Amino acid sequence: MKRLTQDQFFKAVDFIMTNARPLDKKLFEYFFWNGSSLAVMNELCRYQNTDGGCGHGIEPDIRTAVSSPVGTSVAMQYACMVKTPLQHPFIKRAMQYFTSVFEENGKWPLILPEMNDEPHADWWHYTGQTGGGFEANPGAEITGYYHAYPQILRDGLLGTLHDHVFQYIENTEGVMEFHEVLSYLRLAEVIPEPGKSMLTDQLRKIAPKVVTTNPEEWDGYCAKPLWMAPSPASPLYSVLKNNVDLNLDYEIDNQAADGSWHPFWEWGQFREVWENEAKKEWQGWLTVKTLLALHSFGRIDEKVTVEKRS
């Protein structure tokens, strides 16, 4: 079994401490050096607007400062990773933003017109052509945050959201886009039974059809196995085990010379912003994400002392 060597690990750490966003540095410190969740949240608050939503490049492919449901969902991923309680003002404001957007639109739109106002990835360009119904990405994930923080719920909202979530997955006929699968996986982590088992069973049937299993394709934009099952506790690991093991070997072999892991996608426009800003921000996040996955699977050299949280 391949393991990240001590030298490789510290090259990654040096890259993070030198190049990553302050937010991702604090997230690394939280998991590997017993850092403070408050330090992570202090950085995360910099991305929150007065309406409670988040922008300002929290999702590096979207550079606008304007709040968006997807940007706010990315921010909530960080908040949940460090177990932020409801009492934190960030959580209350973000959840109020989600509720206000849903009440206005009947869903959480994925792409907003304001995204065109600043440099952005090609796939985030607003064309005015959006679906009229529920959008599973990020809708399923956001529904999960109401389970993580049920005190925020207004009467009747959860039932409406569950109608959307379960009807959508039942109508997919076993075919979903991989970001939708990720969104449902985040919901499955927090939804109580029997919903958890129902979603997990569905996702275990869908995932093998969505995941890219050929290592020769992993350097392009695709659904890598490790993205679907980033730890042994992931609900999809049992059906993706062999592919995840290969993916772990692949990531160890494909660490860049500077210690980072590069995004396996790139912009076709705004190239200067991509090269000088967005790409580097993704490198920082992906390096933290990859180290977390490698550690979860016992794939970091045993000589490396890590004060990692359980």
Rank of each mutant, 00 (worst) to 15 (best):
A79K: 02
V288N: 06
S100F: 05
I169G: 08
L240E: 06
G133S: 08
R46W: 12
I16C: 01
K83L: 08
G139E: 07
G55F: 13
T287F: 07
G53R: 08
Q255F: 04
G128M: 08
M81I: 07
T72N: 00
V82M: 05
Q283P: 04
H162T: 05
A188N: 04
S183G: 01
K83V: 06
V74W: 13
P109C: 06
H262Y: 14
D51H: 05
D14C: 03
C222K: 02
R93K: 15
E114T: 15
S234E: 08
N34K: 12
R186L: 07
R93G: 04
G55M: 12
S238E: 14
W218G: 11
P89Q: 09
S260C: 13
P113Q: 08
E281N: 10
L86M: 10
T18V: 01
Y126K: 08
A12C: 02
S260G: 03
Y146P: 08
A207F: 03
Y97V: 07
F90Q: 07
D24N: 01
D201E: 15
T143S: 11
S197N: 09
D24T: 06
Q167T: 12
T172Q: 12
S197W: 03
W265T: 06
T200P: 02
A121S: 10
G71S: 09
Y30W: 14
Q129C: 04
D163W: 07
H147F: 15
Q129W: 09
T287V: 05
F102A: 02
D51V: 02
A293W: 04
E170T: 06
G53I: 10
D219I: 13
I152V: 14
D122R: 12
T64D: 00
H56C: 01
A223T: 03
C45R: 15
N243F: 13
V101N: 07
P109H: 09
T143C: 11
W285S: 00
L182E: 14
T18K: 15
W124M: 00
G195M: 06
Q269R: 14
F178Y: 12
E272A: 14
Y47Q: 01
A229Q: 00
G139W: 05
S231H: 13
P150I: 04
P215Y: 02
H164G: 00
K241D: 11
T160K: 14
K25Q: 15
S183Q: 02
E266P: 03
A223R: 01
D301N: 13
I58D: 06
P192E: 04
P69Y: 01
